[in-house]
Write a protein that binds this DNA or RNA. Structure first.
Lengths: 322, 322
DNA sequence: GGTTGACCTGAAATCGATGCCATATCTTAA
DNA sequence: TTAAGATATGGCATCGATTTCAGGTCAACC
């Protein structure tokens, strides 16, 4: 309740002087400065954030939009929040739950200056819709997209996926089953390309084993293990879109009495915590650092400064499933 | 940039009338109302959130404070954000990373009205410190504490833990090793009590196997598996503080060639996603619903209304490790 | 015909902090 | 002695929306 006018009154100065004393900007005599500071301390004064924000026209707050906050998104969130806090920003969450209307609310939040910028872990509306809000503030996407106004902090999954394929090849596997993610994603396209190049390089038949495209869930992984048994045990290895699928695959295989990697090998993607628990060979995806890059990208646009992005690489994590 | 005065000017009315037209409160002639609405639409007007907030003195924003956002915290976060959004609130994250200074920043945020209320997943400072900020807005804790000003949405872990113990007993295990969490937590105290009562009930020796108190990590679980081998294989079952420990224990045991549950049984706690992957018997902890309750508690304090809390129960999830 | 109350409108105050501008004093240099 | 510059201070407008208040019209009712 104590505002700056009250502090000023009690210190016997004008609000302007009190403001200067408190902020340390402009001329104030040492004597009055001390008096104001003392009164402020005594009355436990803190400036009202909303008033400062209204005046400054900025919020130092960034909205993070995601369908949910589990698995790799929670890693991203953690990395992003850390980077933001280190630079005096706060992060507000918008959870869409795969609902376009909720996504729209986040965009409207940008428009009404609830937040200075938005970072999309993933979006559901069309890119044009998202981009049309870019005039209200910076928008950055994690999901890989190509658009002038909506930069993305993607890492080309080509390299990462190739790491896994090369590793499987080196281990002697030749009939690789690709478990891609959703087909419309650019990430998926990159992986398909990687596999094509891989087959060319080693002169392999791309059709030696079938491929799948589905949202990468544990349940799908489990299904794949059963499919392998029932459909003639054709693939000798699986390269998967993420660790969830790989984990489901490995777990169900073990339940069915199959042996990994003797019956078939599995290479995951992301290197989430549970990959270690299952001894899953996987590709480490530096989500944390990527989130920091996403923040740097946003900050450089808000503050109009150049900020370096950390170059990131995928890394093969060899464990027991290959 | 278009503000309400501009809309008013363009519609040929006063700002007051424009405000009334837009908010739908107070008297406005149908004709002017339509004119204002049309101009607003045409100029893509949205009210500036900060100005509204400054005027209303409230933010409809709640701060969520946690050391990190992984594992069960991400479940809590998701549940909390969902509940908040459904009621027109937004959630701002404060990540402490186990640093008291960061925690202080969150508390100061409450004081300067950056947020209307705070939810602590866990806190590091002393309870008196936390409570001293309660005068600036509602504070709710997930971690169980007993304090007039800082209510918590705890669930008595006594019941949950007992579920696990009873289950182990029914399966014939008699030398149970308790892997508690941090000893100072009330949750831990509840579990110790549960175990004492359990031993009394079945006339068991509480010292039949040793107990541990440590931060429940996967690494600690792995260590326990090795300890079991090296120290005489005394316990025939482990009841653990959370799924991380249990998972580490099971995974390392399997790596060491031990058989679970033949060599020893393991019962986890929380029922996180990966518990299913490892076929871990565990106690389901309804984190999601609890987060919703936490929100209801905060909301009832902010809006000064009575809101019912959903009664929640633990549930045994039998899988393959017992 | 006068009173009551519903309806309508705009001026101005308000929320709390900030910063420009005018004014004033004092020091230093030409 | 005067001009220029540094130092200090308060008044007032400003950010953008809301809300109170006062003033007004008009119809209905006794």
């Amino acid at each position: 309740m104590t505002n700056i006018q009250e502090i000023a009154r009690r210190a016997g100065v004008s609000p302007s002087t009190a403001s200067r004393a408190l902020s340390g900007k402009g001329y104030v005599s040492e004597e009055k400065k001390l008096r104001v500071l003392e009164v402020a301390r005594q009355f436990d004064y803190v400036p009202n954030a909303n008033a400062v924000l209204l005046k400054s026209g900025t919020t130092r707050r960034i909205g993070l939009v995601a369908p949910s906050f589990e698995e790799s998104v929670s890693l991203f969130t953690g990395g992003f929040v850390r980077a933001a806090q280190e630079n005096g920003y706060t992060v507000t969450l918008f959870m869409t739950g795969f609902d376009t209307a909720k996504e729209r609310e986040a965009l409207e939040g940008l428009r009404r200056k609830q937040v200075d910028a938005l970072v999309f872990v993933m979006f559901l509306s069309g890119l044009p819709t998202i981009a049309s809000y870019a005039k209200y503030g910076p928008i950055v996407s994690w999901q890989r997209v190509v658009h002038e106004e909506v930069p993305s902090v993607f890492m080309d999954q080509y390299d990462g996926y190739m790491l896994g394929l090369e590793h499987l090849h080196a281990r002697g596997y030749r009939r690789i089953c690709n478990v891609y993610g959703v087909g419309t994603r650019l990430n998926t396209q990159s992986r398909i390309e990687a596999f094509a190049d891989f087959c060319r390089k080693y002169d392999l038949d791309p059709q030696a084993a079938p491929s799948f495209m589905e949202r990468g869930t544990t349940a799908h992984g489990e299904e794949l293990a059963r499919w392998w048994l029932e459909s003639g045990r054709i693939p000798d290895a699986f390269a998967t879109t993420n660790d969830q699928v790989a984990a489901g695959l490995v777990a169900e295989a073990r339940r069915l009495g199959l042996r990994v990697p003797e019956d078939f090998a599995v290479c995951g993607f992301d290197n989430l915590d549970f990959a270690h628990l299952l001894d899953l060979t996987t590709i480490h995806y530096p989500v944390d650092e990527q989130a920091a890059n996403a923040f740097a990208m946003i900050r450089s646009r808000i503050e109009d400064i150049e900020l370096p992005l950390r170059p990131l690489n995928f890394r093969l994590v060899e464990r027991a499933t290959t």
